[in-house]
Computed example of a mutant assay.
Amino acid sequence: MMKVWRVVIVGCHPTSMLGTKLILEEGGELEVLGMYSSWNEGVYNIQEMQPDLVLMDYQMPEGNLQGILPEIKSNAQHAHCIVMTEEEDKDMFLPLIELGASGVLSKGASPRQLLLMIDGLREGFLSIPLDWIEKGFRPPTSSKGLSGVMQLTQTERFIMERIVQGITYDKIAQEIEVSRRSIDNYLRKIYVKLDVTTRAQAIEKFALHANQSKQMYA
């Protein structure tokens, strides 16, 4: 008899999580241990419960999961993590896999598609949508060069995009309605994530890998 997998769900919509719970438990092979609406609750309980599977929204009120996923995998190394996104975004696939995800699935996917992905993981297989292949998706051997850029928040990405375009720091501060000093704080965080020490290095790395990302997944 196949082992019953213990599942934790982390999402921002309680009604959706309840519906997912009912779908997962219908066949008797999956048991939902808990459903959590914040990263703090989710991370703590995943560490305590050590589930076999974690279903998580990519975007939560506190932000996206890029900074959280490595922590979850560190705390629950044997857990498979399926990331639920608003749409099937193949651009996220490899970076999220390298951060520890076992699959990426659109929230618009059918219950059957979700269960098939889980069944694949139970058998040791990772699945991707067939239409990605039909649209020309060809994963490279690695996307680690993109990991630093992927860690940037939406605001940090906007700042770097404007800097690459030659916009001044004062103008960027006005555009996002923050102080000039806040831009300096953002830049310090950006430099750490990109593993650079100068503006020129940050521009080079951001522009290079942002361009590579578009080419890879066009």
Rank of each mutant, 00 (worst) to 15 (best):
Met1His: 03
Met1Leu: 04
Met2Thr: 02
Lys3Ser: 11
Lys3Trp: 11
Val4Met: 13
Val8Cys: 15
Gly11Tyr: 07
His13Ser: 15
Ser16Thr: 12
Leu18Arg: 10
Gly19Ala: 10
Glu25Met: 01
Glu25Asn: 03
Glu26His: 03
Gly28Tyr: 00
Glu31Pro: 00
Glu31Ser: 03
Leu33Ala: 08
Ser37Gly: 12
Ser37Glu: 14
Gly42Ala: 05
Val43Ile: 07
Val43Leu: 04
Glu48Met: 01
Pro51Gly: 13
Asp52Leu: 09
Asp52Lys: 05
Leu53Val: 15
Val54Cys: 02
Val54Lys: 04
Gln59Leu: 14
Gln59Arg: 12
Gly63Lys: 05
Leu65Asn: 06
Gln66Gly: 15
Ile68Met: 13
Glu71Asp: 10
Ile72Asp: 08
Ser74His: 12
Asn75Thr: 12
Asn75Leu: 15
Gln77Asn: 15
His80Gln: 07
Cys81Glu: 14
Thr85Asp: 03
Phe93Ser: 00
Phe93Lys: 01
Pro95Val: 03
Ile97Cys: 12
Ile97Trp: 09
Gly100Lys: 08
Gly100Ser: 09
Ser102Gln: 06
Gly103Asp: 04
Lys107Tyr: 15
Arg112Gln: 14
Arg112Glu: 14
Gln113Asp: 08
Met117Pro: 01
Ile118His: 05
Asp119Ser: 01
Arg122Asp: 12
Glu123Phe: 08
Gly124Lys: 01
Pro129Phe: 09
Asp131Met: 10
Lys135Met: 09
Phe137Met: 13
Pro139Thr: 12
Lys144Thr: 00
Gly145Tyr: 14
Leu146Thr: 00
Ser147His: 15
Leu152Gly: 04
Thr155Trp: 05
Arg157Cys: 11
Arg157Phe: 08
Phe158Leu: 11
Ile159Asp: 01
Met160Gln: 10
Met160Phe: 08
Arg162His: 08
Ile163Asp: 00
Val164Ala: 09
Val164Ser: 07
Val164Cys: 07
Val164Gln: 02
Gly166Thr: 11
Gly166Asp: 07
Ile167Met: 06
Thr168Lys: 11
Thr168Asn: 12
Thr168Met: 11
Asp170Ser: 15
Asp170Pro: 09
Asp170His: 14
Lys171Cys: 05
Ala173Cys: 10
Glu175Lys: 13
Glu177Ala: 14
Glu177Ser: 14
Arg181Thr: 07
Ile183Asp: 10
Ile183Gly: 05
Asp184Phe: 11
Asp184Val: 13
Asp184Cys: 06
Asn185Asp: 07
Lys189Tyr: 10
Tyr191Lys: 06
Tyr191Glu: 06
Val192Lys: 09
Lys193Ile: 03
Lys193Ala: 02
Asp195Leu: 06
Thr197Phe: 06
Arg199Glu: 02
Arg199Cys: 00
Ala200Leu: 07
Ala200Ser: 04
Ala202Pro: 05
Ile203Gln: 01
Phe206Tyr: 07
Phe206Gly: 01
Phe206Cys: 02
Ala210Trp: 00
Gln212His: 01
Lys214Val: 13
Gln215Asp: 00
Met216Thr: 00
Met216Cys: 03
Tyr217Leu: 05
Ala218Thr: 09
